[in-house]
Design a protein around this nucleic acid. Structure first.
Length: 268
DNA sequence: GCGACAG
DNA sequence: ATCTTGTCGC
């Protein structure tokens, strides 16, 4: 699939203030409300027997009509970024693509999409069936200008997108994230002074506990999930919970992560 | 000036 | 993100 908004394609040669201005433009176009072509309840895991909701809500008995969920992740080799996309339907992999691009700038918190975006869009150009939703490694609306990597990619391709991060970039959790939470726990993340584009208190995402150890000693930290584009904060969390299958990371992102590692071995 | 900061 | 052995726990 190709960009629907070419003017938003991340250009690493821009100045830092130009990058920030572009992010403000992207945030204005971003829709943090549900605009999906399917019901999140229709998503199945590998080996699932279709249940009432999955068949009823999708208006179809044909498994090939179920939503395509893509996961995107990157690996790096020196100054090269390897972007990998894995597409699942009913929890099963139906497509994998990857692309390699040079990284033009270093990692700068808040400007990640200008480092990784080129490789990601190159990989999407290789992807044939358009996915119904994309899970991106990194933040979406949880960002200083509400334009994290997932938002940038989602808006540029005009595809529903969700940000899945392993740590919090900004915003204030409604409860401390230092405690141990059980599976299924969702903790709202509110905008604060560090989010310059929306009122304090706006819920911009959630900490989502997709997995937890039963007992004492060690614990697992929650994922930080936020809307990228065309999904609400609640639906973003629901989609991640629905695609998680025994691991902390949701399957699309987890498989893209290992595929990126695999693909990077073939890079010279 | 100081602190904080996805991957 | 990346560099890496052992180690704890089910």
């Amino acid at each position: 699939m190709e960009p629907v908004r070419p003017e938003f394609v991340p250009d690493p040669s821009l100045s830092q203030s130009e990058m920030e201005a572009l992010q403000r433009d992207i945030a204005e176009v971003a829709r943090f409300e549900d605009d999906l072509d399917f019901s999140p309840e229709t998503i199945a895991r590998a080996g699932d027997t279709p249940d009432e909701d999955q068949t009823t809500l999708s208006n179809s008995d044909d498994p090939t009509d179920q939503p395509l969920v893509a996961g995107v992740d990157q690996a790096f080799v020196d100054d090269r970024a390897v972007s990998a996309i894995v597409v699942l339907r009913n929890g099963e992999v139906i497509e994998r693509v990857s692309a390699v691009e040079r990284t033009e700038i270093p990692y700068i918190p808040g400007l990640l999409s200008f480092r990784e975006g080129g490789a990601i869009l190159a990989a999407f150009a290789e992807l044939d069936p358009d996915p119904d939703v994309v899970l991106v490694d990194g933040s979406g609306r949880i960002h200083f200008r509400e334009a994290g990597l997932a938002t940038h990619i989602g808006v540029t391709l005009d595809v529903p997108a969700v940000g899945v991060a392993k740590s919090l970039l900004c915003g204030t959790p409604e409860q401390s994230l230092d405690e141990t939470y059980s599976e299924g726990t969702r903790i709202p993340i509110a905008a604060d002074d560090s989010v310059e584009t929306c009122p304090d208190g706006t819920v911009i995402g959630h900490a989502v506990q997709t997995r937890q150890y039963d007992s004492p000693n060690r614990h697992i930290n929650p994922l930080i999930v936020s809307p990228g584009h065309r999904v609400s904060a609640r639906t973003a969390a629901v989609l991640v919970e629905a695609t998680a299958d025994g691991y902390k990371l949701p399957e699309p992102t987890r498989l893209a992560d290992s595929y990126a590692d695999e693909a990077k071995e073939s890079v010279e």
